[in-house]
Nucleic acid binder design. Structure first.
Length: 609
RNA sequence: GCCGAUUUAGCUCAGCUGGUAGAGCAAUUCACUUGUAAUGAAUAGGUCGGGGGUUCAAAUCCUCUAAUCGGCUCCA
């Protein structure tokens, strides 16, 4: 393979933003920059697309009844959607790979020709999936690629010969709706990946394996942070002591952060009369995903959001423009009926706690308040070392309120983002039913994106609940509500944090911050004395006094990813010192008690959102 | 909800084509009293996710159901 890289084999031409393979470039007489056979983005596009076709060819040989839909290149690989009568499972991938390798050996040239759409429709008249593909193509001339006996409609680009496709791996089998429409049939999808050389492929696969070790579900179990239980129910997390300690540290830091920024803590019930959800529109727009109960013949809905309670707090007094903005926050426990197939560790659950807040303000105050929230988000994300993306979601199909109101609200969000010079993406039609939003997205260990925080501008609920304040002219005006969450939910945020740090939590939030290992029973008293002093300093601390060897106890503490391990024996006890072992460096430092306490105080003071 | 797979001791996993279960770690007890990543021995622990069926016999085959995993769809 090295030989190819050195020789700089040309597999395509880049003209402007478009990539052409050598076959098309020759036919259409296109000139531009040459794309060499290597791991560049453009080359991988060609290689992966060709590998997808090679896979289709192999599948067709093994499953002659197979009909193919589409096979695009995706972020780190490719897939192909198809239909067969026979069920295909992960164990069949090996056979498909083997067949692909056999095809590579035949060194089929990959040839291209083009025919009119009418002819293609005719040619594939008995292939309903091809007809579906053709419905989605507007061009009058369709190109077809042929390798050996196999041909498929395709825009390309492709490598010139199947012999360039050695370094691939089929990853998994999945199901996918035809055209992404859940009302259509489900096709079989096989995911795979490919590179220009074997080493890069190996590295990529190793990286995926490494990432799996950071999976929060695996670490949550190993570190005894949380669990799920069949008897309790799907999507209902149970927080174990370690996880609950971690979570309560986060809660308390975030509480202070809110208070510093002028938010008032409030609290409202878990269940509210359905009548209230009808006023808000949740009953009509979201009822199928809510849980209900009946008390004395009156129907109540378990809250899926906290806004209604906060609205009632606002309505408890008459408000003046001088009071605005008013900011209420609550760690609100909400329940949402998620479909059975979507639960995913702590990332997608049926009960979760939002760090939810509502800002009631005048329309003029939207921009400054959104900017302030964006700053709050940035403070939190930086403290944990998270990279995040922002996305504006606009009016969805299921929506309440005027188009004009939506327009104003959406513009308000854009203005705030533009005003603070932050880059953002746009998700058309992805907004909440009552207003547009800015979503804060973070990626997990396997690079899947998850929405965490959110900022939503809402004119609709204030209208529906008739919210008012008295303005400068002593007249009644309607305030705007900004819904916002920074973490999104404690569940999802902690899940992401676990993956981000691979279980090695920073000192300020670690469930067990210090573990003391007395060398022998004689040192237990001193260990407990240290532990008590640290508990006074609000440091979570454990004494490892089990009847095990010193080495074993250190090993266990390390595996539990405890940031600081103190070993104490005769020397430490007599001199009132500690031997501190660093989690990562495996080095020891001998410190006096006072020196050590200063270090941990400093570590705690480093954190402020 | 849909497609595919999985479910055996607290955890991680063995258990071939049917003959009622094993290992390592963890736990408990005892001995050892340890100076920076696993001391040794003994003991205990499972109606094999749950229901129904086939069979002389089911962890193993069939069926329904639940949960989990990988995707799809969805996520106020």
């Amino acid at each position: 393979m090295e030989r190819f890289l050195v020789e700089k084999i040309v597999i395509g031409i880049k003209s402007g933003d478009e990539i052409f393979d050598t076959q098309s470039a020759a036919v259409q007489d296109i000139s531009g920059d040459e794309i060499y056979y290597d791991n560049s983005e453009d080359a991988l596009e060609i290689i992966r697309h060709s590998t997808a076709h090679l896979m289709a060819q192999a599948i067709k040989m093994l499953y002659p009844d197979a009909k193919f839909f589409v096979g695009p290149v995706i972020e780190d690989g490719f897939y192909y959607d198809f239909r067969t009568q026979e069920k295909i499972s992960d164990t069949d991938l090996k056979a498909i790979e083997k067949q692909m390798k056999a095809l590579i050996k035949k060194k089929f040239p990959i040839e291209q020709y083009s025919i009119s759409k009418a002819d293609v429709l005719e040619k594939f008249a008995d292939d309903d999936l091809k007809q579906e593909v053709l419905k989605r193509i507007e061009d009058e001339n369709i190109t077809i690629y042929k390798q050996g006996e196999f041909e498929d409609l395709c825009r390309g680009p492709h490598v010139p010969n199947t012999r360039y496709l050695h370094n691939f791996k089929l990853i998994r089998v999945a199901g996918a709706y035809l055209g992404g429409d859940e009302n259509r049939e489900m096709l079989t999808r096989v995911y795979g990946t490919a590179f220009a050389d074997k080493e890069t492929l190996k590295e990529h696969l190793a990286m995926i394996e490494e990432a799996k070790k950071r999976d929060h579900r695996k670490l949550g179990n190993e570190l005894k942070l949380f669990t799920f239980d069949d008897e309790i129910g799907a999507g209902l997390p149970v927080w174990l002591p370690n996880g609950a300690r971690l979570r309560s540290k986060l809660e308390s830091l975030l509480f202070t952060a809110h208070r510093k920024r002028g938010y008032q803590p409030v609290r409202a019930p878990e269940i509210l009369k359905s009548e209230a959800w009808k006023v808000s529109g949740h009953y009509q727009n979201y009822g199928e995903n809510m849980y209900f109960t009946t008390i004395d013949d009156v129907e109540y809905g378990i809250k899926p959001m906290n806004c209604l309670g906060h609205i009632k707090v606002y309505q408890n007094e008459l408000r003046s423009y001088r009071d605005l903005p008013i900011k209420y926050f609550e760690y609100g426990v909400v329940h949402r009926h998620e479909k059975s197939g979507v639960m995913h560790g702590l990332f997608r659950v049926r009960e979760f706690t939002q760090d939810d807040a509502h800002i009631f303000c005048t329309p003029e105050q939207i921009k400054e308040n959104v900017i302030e929230v964006l700053g709050f988000v940035d403070d939190i994300m930086k403290s944990f070392g998270f990279e995040y993306n922002l996305e504006i979601s606009t009016k969805p199909e299921k929506a309440i309120g005027d188009d004009k109101v939506w327009e104003i609200a959406t513009q308000g969000l854009k203005d705030a983002l533009d005003g603070s010079g932050i880059a953002y993406g746009i998700d058309e039609g992805g907004g909440a039913f009552y207003g547009p939003k800015i979503d804060i997205k973070i990626t997990d260990a396997l690079k899947r994106k998850w929405q965490c925080g959110t900022i939503q501008v809402d004119f609709n609920l204030p209208e529906r609940f008739g919210l008012e304040y008295t303005d400068e002219n002593n007249e009644k005006s309607q305030p705007v509500m900004i819904h916002r969450a920074i973490l999104g939910s404690f569940e999802r945020f902690i899940g992401i944090l676990i993956e981000h740090v691979g279980g090695e939590f920073p000192f300020f939030i670690a469930p067990t911050q210090v573990i003391i290992v007395p060398i022998a029973d004689a040192h237990l008293g001193y260990a407990k004395e240290l532990a008590n002093e640290m508990m006074e300093m609000e440091i979570d601390c454990e004494v490892s006094s089990k009847n095990e060897s010193l080495n074993k106890r250190i090993r266990v503490a390390e595996k539990q990813r405890v940031p600081m391990i103190l070993v104490v024996g005769d020397e430490e006890m007599n001199n009132k010192t500690v031997a501190l072992r660093d989690r990562r460096e495996r080095k020891q430092y001998n410190l006096t008690k006072a020196e050590f306490y200063n270090i941990i105080k400093e570590k705690m003071d480093e954190v402020h959102f």
